[in-house]
Design a binder for these strands. Structure first.
Lengths: 220, 220
DNA sequence: TAGATTGTTAATCGATTAACAATC
DNA sequence: TAGATTGTTAATCGATTAACAATC
């Protein structure tokens, strides 16, 4: 194997990647309340995690802390944003102007963290032409052409499960390479396309099952 | 250790639990298209998973398959619903009548899978009294009393991050034992309360980071 | 300095995957 | 029967946690 392989940035484990935004949120809050420096144990206590785990997670940012002191909050925030790519804007199209779709479109926080939804589509002729959050709903047939022309690489699916696969096909046809899928439906896409499932039923299943287990163990 | 301990149902690993709803969705679809029996390899192909993993996951339902044939679809669906508790209704209150909150309230699918949102609250006096999806928005101060009186054990938080902790406090005060938290904020709650985080920023972080890695590896 | 905290290596834990006998 | 598929045990893999030297 050539030496360059070792120089390639080691991929960040997914569990770590999922925790980084939580650290970022917490650090922003601490910075706002005037904190200049923070230790892993502080973060661990607030987020209910193991301090060693946090140390390992933060290592991926390249930031080094001072023994007995901790990490500089602003530098750590900056480094996290760099790793998460929140400085570069990700342009995306969204399909499905239902309540979830418009909620995501209107969620200012996403914009703040580098997600820019440039167009919203729907297949419903009654919805096409309506304006939501300042953007006109476009016919979904326009997606492939527009995505290709604007070189959009990210697509968000918020349509009902039955329509999700056909929307994914349109996205792939439009050159989209990463799909954020909120529909409870497994998608079949080309090998070079990434699908990130955001299945809220999974979360609900964990919650209700844990609740039942907890009630049983307390014999209630 | 007394023998009864061994009889207690072994807790289902979280990764397994998160996959069960995906199996359920897929099986429902297969049943609708008339399929009576299904094999692990069929499921594996459709969901892009390992057949052995599926066999192990399905074992938690207690359903046994027939070698060379597979599993009976209707029985498997029933068994999954039982494990996931989708037969018993989970009553819940929701706080935060913003776009995400109303989207969740209006999402019929949740109702179908055993989640019944009995009341929606907000702290904004302008919103209180408005009706969304047939339910009047109530002042958040009423939450503890109502939750306790109706014996609601589940709460959903869809308020901005700054307000999430105070809402969680109200929920705990109202006897709520499981919180589904959509706000990007770590919550501090009593030991007997479960918090399920549904942080969409984690999903976004995974998506954009993977996309960048993919683009780099293809040297584009 | 003494002691708290970092960074890192080793041990543990748990989940995924491989191997294979049982069975229809 | 032969061969596909199940169920289960063992091996592998990867993430978390523990231990501890380095350091401010």
């Amino acid at each position: 194997m050539p030496k360059t392989t070792e120089l390639l940035t080691h991929p960040i484990p997914e569990p770590t990647l999922r925790r980084l935004p939580r650290y970022h949120h917490f650090l922003m809050r601490e910075e706002n309340s005037g904190k200049k420096v923070i230790s892993c144990s502080d973060i661990a206590r607030a987020l209910n995690l193991d301090p060693t785990q946090i140390r390992k997670d933060l290592a991926v940012t390249g930031i080094v802390g001072k023994p007995k002191v901790g990490y500089e909050v602003p530098a750590l925030i900056q480094a996290l944003e760099k790793v998460l790519g929140w400085n570069n804007v990700t342009h995306a199209v969204l399909v499905g102007a239902g309540s979830l779709g418009t909620a995501i479109l209107g969620y200012q926080q996403f914009n703040k963290y580098g997600l820019n939804i440039v167009a919203i589509f729907d297949s419903d002729a009654n919805k096409v032409g309506q304006v939501v959050h300042g953007r006109e709903i476009l016919p979904v047939g326009w997606l492939p052409g527009m995505a290709r022309q604007m070189r959009i690489l990210t697509g968000i699916i918020t349509v009902p499960a039955e329509a999700a696969q056909s929307v994914a096909d349109l996205m792939v046809a439009g050159g989209i390479r990463a799909i954020w899928n909120f529909a409870p439906r497994a998608l079949t896409v080309s090998a070079d396309t990434i699908v990130q499932y955001e299945d809220m039923f999974s979360g609900l299943a964990v919650l209700t099952t844990r609740l039942r287990a907890s009630l049983l163990s307390f014999s209630e």
